[in-house]
């Protein structure tokens, strides 16, 4: 057991998989000699050498296209797109190429790759370097999408993503890089498609993802202490495949559902989950499901403005408490 940062967990996760399998290769902008703009790949170049850890030009289409061609023909590439907002300049690969090739070829073409990216707000970088884009990926049949919230999940889910035979989008939250958590020694391998109950509770289910998980946990403690409301916090972790069993099970127990989403409101992941719960667990509910999201705006740069729009523990507490007052 050791306490490490989310950033160091990324390094450890990649290193664990590269040490295990020579077919795992890693490419991206400034990732090798410089160790990544978020310093989340420091030391990999020194450990695995220039053939396996490769700096690329600023060519997002070439990065993802090359990852795909390598994956189709036998390698297991990890590609880094520096900021998830840049998915927009290489979206063809994410939306049309990775996820459709197996289907269109009637099962001939494989695409076992991982795209890692820095997602989310908190760095005060403004609208083009801060967005949460998990819903851009979630809507595409053929992709898998995960977003870990803790160092141990980073390692375990990254390992699962690398070993998975499908293309996986791996969303690292930029504001979580400096956060710390306990990580066991030795190899860590988790499972895609599994949510995690990070705080058991009886009165309400709060679903959260990535940076919203620690905020939901903080809110749950305050709701308990200040209002006597005992919340169950579920870290969704994997948007595709989606662990609806854990989510529906929690709602069946608590009878109340809240989602905490960093994405702009329209078509956020919570909307899909609320619709599933409405379809399949309507009579389990004691009140309307409530989505707590960033409003439907581009993100502002100024810290004071950005802080006003992302869901906070404060807003979660108020929303849940108000909903209980009914």
């Amino acid at each position: 057991m050791a306490e490490i940062t989310y950033r160091d967990a990324v390094i450890r996760g990649i290193a664990q998989e590269m040490a295990r399998d020579n077919d795992v290769v890693f490419l991206g902008e400034d990732v090798a000699k410089a160790g990544g703009v978020f310093k989340a790949t420091v030391g990999l170049y020194e450990q695995f050498g220039p053939l396996r850890v490769r700096d690329t030009p600023i060519s997002e289409q070439a990065i993802l296209g090359a990852a795909m061609g390598a994956a189709m023909t036998g390698l297991k590439p990890i590609a880094e797109i520096m900021f998830s907002d840049f998915f927009a300049v290489c979206f063809d690969y994410i939306a049309n190429e990775f996820p459709k090739s197996r289907y269109m070829s009637n099962g001939q073409t494989k695409c076992p790759l991982v795209v890692r990216t820095g997602n989310g707000a908190g760095s005060r970088f403004g609208a083009q370097h801060s967005q949460s884009v998990e819903n851009w990926c979630m809507m595409i049949p053929g992709l898998k999408v995960v977003a870990p919230s803790s160092p141990v999940d980073v390692i375990g889910l990254l390992a699962a993503a690398v070993r998975d035979p499908d293309p996986v989008i791996f969303l690292e939250h930029k504001s979580l890089y400096p956060t710390k958590g306990e990580v066991p020694d030795g190899e860590i391998v988790d499972r895609l498609g599994t949510a995690k109950i990070v705080r058991p509770g009886r009165d309400a289910t709060i679903l959260a993802l990535a940076l919203m998980v620690p905020r939901a946990l903080e809110a749950a403690e305050r709701l308990q202490a200040e209002h006597g409301i005992d919340c169950e916090v579920v870290d969704v972790r994997s948007l595709v495949p989606l662990d609806t069993q854990t989510i529906l099970g929690s709602v069946a127990k608590t009878h109340r559902l809240f989602t905490v989403e960093e994405n702009p409101r329209l078509c956020g992941w919570g909307a899909e989950i609320v619709s599933i719960v409405a379809d399949e667990a309507f009579y389990d509910l004691d009140g309307p499901p409530v989505r707590i999201t960033t409003p439907h705006i581009p993100l502002p740069a100024a810290d004071i403005l950005e802080d006003m729009v992302l869901p906070t523990a404060e807003r979660i507490v108020e929303t849940v408490q108000r909903s209980f007052q009914g």
Binding site: M68, M72, E97, S101, S105, T109
Partner: peptide, 29 residues
């Protein structure tokens, strides 16, 4: 989208230009 991997036909791509980087990746392998 004609594809026959057993013949080395690694796909036919209908988004202009998409397959040039993909061919690079196969060559990288």
């Amino acid at each position: 989208h004609l594809t026959s991997e057993e013949h080395g036909v690694m796909g036919s791509y209908a988004i202009i230009g998409a397959h040039l980087p993909i061919a690079c990746g196969a060559a990288w392998r």
